[in-house]
């Protein structure tokens, strides 16, 4: 039988108290694991938010700060269901990033697929790399 193997650099799910979210319901808030990737024309933020549906997602970019919040309702809570062994908790995902200036806020786009959120943050025009041609003599 195969032994347990895991993807590289996978950290455990982390609960957080530090995200400034006003909670109305009880429960814990978790930090989604994220990748931040830079391309020539944009930054891409990729966040694992399993169980979050499109309608339950809130993304706000304001003065260089990007907040993502995904609401997750408790699962498997029907009567007669009993947890025999629970390795992870279920709750909202929230995280705030300081992206800095230089993002064209009007062109930010986001997509959600199989519990993975991708936010595209296009760079402002003046920050795009450009090729400078050397004039012939």
């Amino acid at each position: 039988m195969a032994a347990n193997t895991m993807p590289t650099c996978e950290a455990p799910k982390r609960a957080t108290e530090t995200v400034p979210t006003e909670r109305i319901r009880g429960g814990r808030t978790y930090l989604p694991a994220v990748d931040i990737v830079e391309r020539d024309d944009r930054l891409m933020l990729v966040a694992d938010m399993p169980g979050v549906r499109r309608d339950d997602l809130e993304i706000v970019y304001e003065r260089g700060q990007l907040s993502i919040l995904g609401k997750v309702d408790p699962r498997q809570t029907a009567d007669g269901i009993e947890c025999l062994r629970c390795e992870y908790g279920v709750g909202d995902f929230a995280r705030v990033f300081q992206i800095g200036e230089g993002i064209d806020a009007s062109k930010i786009e986001a997509e959600l697929r199989e519990g993975v959120l991708t936010v595209h943050l296009p760079k402002a025009r003046e920050l795009m790399p450009r090729r400078i041609a050397v004039k012939p003599q």
């Binding site: 993807p7 994220v34 830079e38």
Partner: peptide, 12 residues
């Protein structure tokens, strides 16, 4: 990558 926390690859 400015930040890389998500796992990649095969798991069992």
């Amino acid at each position: 990558f400015h930040r890389r926390e998500r796992g990649v690859g095969e798991f069992t």
